[in-house]
Design a protein around this nucleic acid. Structure first.
Lengths: 278, 278
DNA sequence: CTTAAGTTTTTCATGATATGAAAAATATAT
DNA sequence: ATATATTTTTCATATCATGAAAAACTTAAG
């Protein structure tokens, strides 16, 4: 399961002796790990009966029973007496929510932005909705000498940025129309989509593809590919993008870049507890 | 979904034999329970070093180490290599968040919370009863720079929060007394209602008005206005509130805010199939 | 650079205890 | 009533979790 969790935690702690690279985890407690596997499994398959869990996980019912009862004692799982099934408990929510207090969206996104930049070679950005604009809150710059740059803190209208369009593409029509307002859509370059019909079609395409494109719609010579990030409520709360000069982002590179961006957005989504779209 | 769910799980399952009442838990796995105690302790005291946890919990460093490494392997805890301390991990958040999906309450409430926030300009919250506390499960934050901040996952005693009082005001006296217990009511600020007479009068007022007020009774400088939400069984299962700095919520604004909150609560009640009070 | 103090991992022997099989207890269905 | 399905307990056994102490390592100080 948690492939994201891997990421190689290079814990260089005080007293880490020699053979660390080879045998990674001979220090794990087997029984605890098995119990946590049950805990995790239950979170992915809520509302299972004891026997169901036991058979599916290939464990003895007695063992599963004792694990669940133990976790229940701490409120980490709950037993629905009516349906005779088990669920994740409220205490798990309380404990897990502590994670949010530690780091902000920006900090959490940082590693994914960095990886995306290294993967694509282009500047990676993170933006959120701020009123009717996208607010760019974080970025990891490419090492290339020619860079698309716009500092964090920059505001850009929703309809003329990749992240903005990625977010618009996920909103229900009512909210989308409300944010876009009734005034004419401002044109920044000849390529800006100012026609609402055309914009709507572009958003449909973005939703289908899983990523949105900005083809010099805000700045001439600059392209951008963006994908939406979903939070725990499955709401699109942020967008990740890569941006660079058109010369380095030709048509044929778009699918690969789109995949990379969508992948980064998906990883961040999972780290936020959201469910990534298929 | 279910009623409060907490309240002593009287698991009357298929094969529960005789002596169940007496010896409650001889089926718990000791090592697992100890490990979960560490997990829980870490969530309450984030950012502790291994040795610190070991000494504070009176356990051998080796044991704590192995527990943490095991949990780390599943992303339930994370090691901050810079500060050499441990934290709750993202996977714990993801798993815990599954608790919210069990009931559709949170999802249903979302649009009403958003609308309430936009209507009042203040952060809107959703809370449910969890034991003797209110558990805050969802919120839509204001865009104002000065915000009342308490993240989802927070627990707050019933008598010192707006939502808690809104819910208490709808309970029959027996249940209310049971939840409030016999211990003295804890005071968080000089304004906290610790006198049961005064609290009871306040609850009567709240029931008459249709909304409850928290006038800096939990946090100084922070006010809160809350109303109860009823499910299909006409039980008060949740509360909606707006919270913000006292400076933005003066006395003369209370009636309008109260109307807005009560309206949102009524709308959610209707969406849940409950009947709103007159 | 050397020494010292503090923290984290590992090793190892031992006993606690987690585990599965099977039986008992209980619920549901026929 | 009987049969079937599911959960809980009992019990014997070997796994494996545990603490003590040593080793590995980091940082701070001399």
């Amino acid at each position: 399961m948690g492939d994201t969790a891997a990421e190689s935690t290079p814990r260089r702690a005080r007293g880490r002796p020699r053979g660390w690279d080879d045998k990674t985890e001979q220090n794990t407690i087997k029984s605890l790990d098995r119990a946590m596997a049950v805990f995790e499994y239950l979170s992915e398959n809520p509302g299972l009966a004891l026997s169901e869990i036991a058979t599916r996980m290939g464990q003895s019912p007695a063992t599963i029973y004792r694990i669940l009862v133990t976790l229940e004692g701490r409120g980490l799982v709950e037993f629905d007496a009516g349906a005779q099934v088990w669920h994740i408990g409220s205490r798990a929510f309380v404990i897990g929510a502590r994670f949010l207090r530690r780091t902000s969206l920006v900090e959490r996104a940082r590693p994914f932005l960095r990886q995306l930049m290294e993967e694509t070679g282009e500047t990676a950005n993170l933006g959120i909705v701020q009123g009717a604009n996208v607010l760019f809150v974080s970025q990891v710059e490419t090492q290339a000498t020619i860079r698309a740059f716009f500092a964090p803190g920059t505001l850009s209208p929703l309809h003329s940025s990749g992240i903005g369009k990625a977010l618009l593409s996920q909103m229900d029509p009512a909210r989308r129309d409300r944010l876009l307002g009734h005034d004419p859509l401002e044109a920044f370059t000849p390529h800006t989509l100012t026609d609402r019909q055309a914009l709507s079609a572009d958003l449909d395409r973005a939703r289908a593809l899983g990523f949105a494109e900005d083809r010099e719609e805000k700045n001439l010579g600059m392209r951008c590919i963006a994908a939406p990030v979903f939070d725990i409520h499955d709401e699109a709360v942020a967008g990740i993008s890569v941006s660079g000069p058109t010369s380095r982002m030709p048509e044929e590179a778009v699918p690969a870049l789109g995949r990379a961006v969508a992948g980064a957005a998906r990883n961040l989504t999972l780290a936020l507890g959201g469910t990534a779209p298929a």
